[in-house]
Computed example of a mutant assay.
Amino acid sequence: MREAGVPSPVVPYGADQTLFVVIDRLDEATEIRIERNDLEATIGELVAGCFYDPIKVISFNTLEHWMKDISTIVAGEIRARCDIDGMTMPDYLSDFVESHS
């Protein structure tokens, strides 16, 4: 039985949402998954340094029942934004971008 006030960890069947999960490594033994429903916000948070050591970004759709690794797309977008803004690739993103480019 679920406790009152605790949200369900599962999106209800039929809810048409595309979600983005960032897999972040905290240390050698610990990985966490952080879910977002907005790709633009997810990329912005990556560039802003809101993640310790991002490993992968996965998207999935709850209605169409698909998922895909979009790490290469996100890495390309991060590289493009750094180039456009004339900024050096942040250290915390260099491994992620290099491994997915």
Rank of each mutant, 00 (worst) to 15 (best):
I73M: 13
I43F: 06
F96D: 10
G86R: 10
R33I: 01
E35K: 12
L39D: 02
A15Y: 03
P9N: 11
S59L: 00
E3Y: 13
C50V: 05
I73F: 14
A4I: 09
A48D: 11
G76V: 04
F96S: 11
F60V: 02
D24H: 04
I32R: 11
S8P: 01
L46M: 15
E35R: 14
A48L: 08
V6L: 13
R79F: 12
I43K: 02
R33L: 11
P9D: 09
V21G: 00
E28V: 09
S101P: 01
G49F: 04
E64R: 15
G44W: 07
A80H: 14
V74S: 01
W66L: 03
E77V: 12
L19E: 07
S59P: 00
R81W: 04
T42H: 05
A15F: 06
I55W: 06
I58L: 11
V97Y: 09
L93D: 06
F51T: 03
L19Q: 06
E98V: 05
V11M: 03
I70E: 01
G86H: 13
G49P: 04
T42D: 07
E35V: 14
E98N: 14
E3M: 12
V6G: 01
M89R: 08
I78F: 02
E35Y: 05
G76K: 03
E77H: 11
D16Q: 06
I32C: 08
M89N: 03
L63W: 09
E98D: 15
D38E: 12
A75K: 05
P12A: 08
K56G: 00
P7Y: 02
G14Q: 02
A75N: 08
D16N: 13
I70Q: 06
K68Q: 14
E31G: 02
D27W: 08
G86P: 13
D69E: 05
E3T: 05
E64K: 15
G14E: 04
K56P: 02
S94T: 15
F51I: 03
V57W: 01
D83I: 11
T72R: 15
Q17K: 15
G86L: 14
G76N: 08
G86F: 10
P12F: 03
A29Y: 12
I73T: 14
F20G: 00
A80S: 15
G76F: 04
I55Y: 09
F60W: 03
E40T: 13
Y52D: 14
S99C: 11
E64V: 09
P90E: 07
P9H: 09
I70D: 04
G5P: 05
V57C: 04
M89G: 03
V21C: 09
T30G: 00
